[in-house]
């Protein structure tokens, strides 16, 4: 069973965010709370999908990640792009330190 985290886009500015341990949101994937089994993942997703969260984020969903000392990295390329920004504009997005 691989690790999972919850990601979404923030309602007001649309930027990519990750659910943290206190069920808040961070734009830093390394702050994300890790679900080690499916039950925990489902619980996190449910907490991310409440009516209260609906005015904070849009479209929460689970993604698979790998965690190491270097931090958390999504397993799918699409999600890696979301943590960085467009590969063709490395001056934009999180990869640019904006």
């Amino acid at each position: 069973m691989s690790l999972q985290i919850v990601t979404a886009n923030r309602l007001d500015d649309g930027l990519v965010v990750f659910m943290t341990a206190n069920h808040g949101w961070s734009d830093d994937i390394h702050q994300a709370v890790l679900a080690e089994d499916q039950a925990h993942a489902d619980d996190l997703l449910a907490r991310a999908s409440t009516r209260d969260q609906d005015i904070v984020v849009v479209g929460p969903y689970l993604i698979e990640v790998e965690a190491s000392e270097a931090g958390i990295v999504p397993t799918k390329y699409r999600e890696v792009l979301r943590t960085k920004g467009p590969s063709v504009r490395q001056d934009l997005g999180y990869q640019a330190g904006q």
Binding site: L15, R51, D54
Partner: peptide, 21 residues
Amino acid sequence: TEDQFRPLRLMNGVYLQLHAY
């Protein structure tokens, strides 16, 4: 809700994409 809003924003050209709106 987002479900109610989505078609309204779409009809004004507003998508939610990979990184942002």
